[in-house]
Simulated assay, not measured.
Amino acid sequence: MKLAILSCGPRSYSTRRLKEAALERNYDVKVLNTLKFAIDLDRGSPDLYYNQKALSHYDAVLPRIGASITYYGTAVVRQFEEMNVFCANTANGITNSRDKLRSLQILSRHHIGIPRTTFVKDKKDVLPAIERVGGAPVVIKLIEGTQGIGVLLAETLKAAESIIELLQSQKQNVLIQKFVAESKGKDIRAFVVGDRVVAAMRRVAQGSEFRSNVHRGGIAEAVELSDDYTETAVRAAQILG
């Protein structure tokens, strides 16, 4: 199998581990810089160039698209899809996952459990929205953000109102979300391949930090999922694409 890993960070840990795993299976694997592609379109003939040369055939692609290049990165992935190359993560799946509101709308429609969430623009709607999700404390999130950046905990109604007003004054779109106190700074990440969970980890926040992201100092530990959690993880991955 000839495999391409799309990544702007060939020396990053995740990219190196993917390449090592592919080599262990005797795959012909290359790391290709996502920003070095040129997308060519003609009637019935989508094509890709890499470093000014026509791209040779690949059987499959593993996209590692950073948040800062989502638009261009997903365009490249979409072009591979148009060329009938298997992509482990689809362009639509990547785009959906980068927009918190969009992903929650999709999961809600398919009856996947999510924290109660609201999205408002008018200042007059803020306090009623907070009450609808259960009142303070509430979690306030930027619609686009990774690694826990742009996720804030407002302990009081006044604090929530002030934070939202400040963010909206900076033209930011924000979500207001129920604070799940019983999680106690923990969450679970499941890695889904096809129709099964191949690995899962529990992330635990440290100290007074409520965000469990490893980039925020959280600690990760391997965990076995229950059947209910496994089913939900697989369904969510398939629904989002």
Rank of each mutant, 00 (worst) to 15 (best):
V174P: 07
I143Y: 03
L153H: 02
I65N: 00
A38T: 14
K184P: 05
A38K: 15
K30T: 04
I112Q: 00
Y50P: 11
L48K: 12
N33L: 10
A54E: 11
A233E: 00
N173Y: 13
S226C: 03
I149G: 00
A237Q: 05
L35R: 14
E81R: 09
H57I: 12
F80M: 00
S68Q: 14
T232R: 13
L48M: 10
Y13L: 11
L18P: 00
E182M: 04
I94A: 02
L166S: 12
L6G: 05
Y58F: 15
S97W: 03
I130P: 13
E165P: 00
I94S: 02
H110R: 02
Q177Y: 11
S7M: 08
S68D: 08
S45Y: 10
L32Y: 13
I164S: 02
L157D: 14
K171S: 15
S14M: 07
S162A: 15
S56W: 01
K186L: 07
K30N: 06
D122C: 05
D59M: 04
L225S: 03
A88E: 02
L167Q: 08
G218R: 11
E161W: 08
S226H: 04
A54V: 13
R116M: 04
A199K: 13
V31Y: 11
T90R: 05
L167H: 11
R196I: 04
G241P: 05
E131A: 14
T15N: 05
L55N: 04
A220C: 08
L166V: 12
Q52R: 15
L142Y: 03
V29K: 05
L104D: 00
F86L: 14
A237T: 06
E165C: 04
G44V: 12
L175K: 13
K123N: 09
L157V: 07
E20V: 09
V133A: 01
E20H: 10
K178L: 02
A91L: 05
L32M: 13
P115G: 03
K158F: 10
D59R: 11
E209L: 07
E81A: 09
N51I: 10
I140R: 04
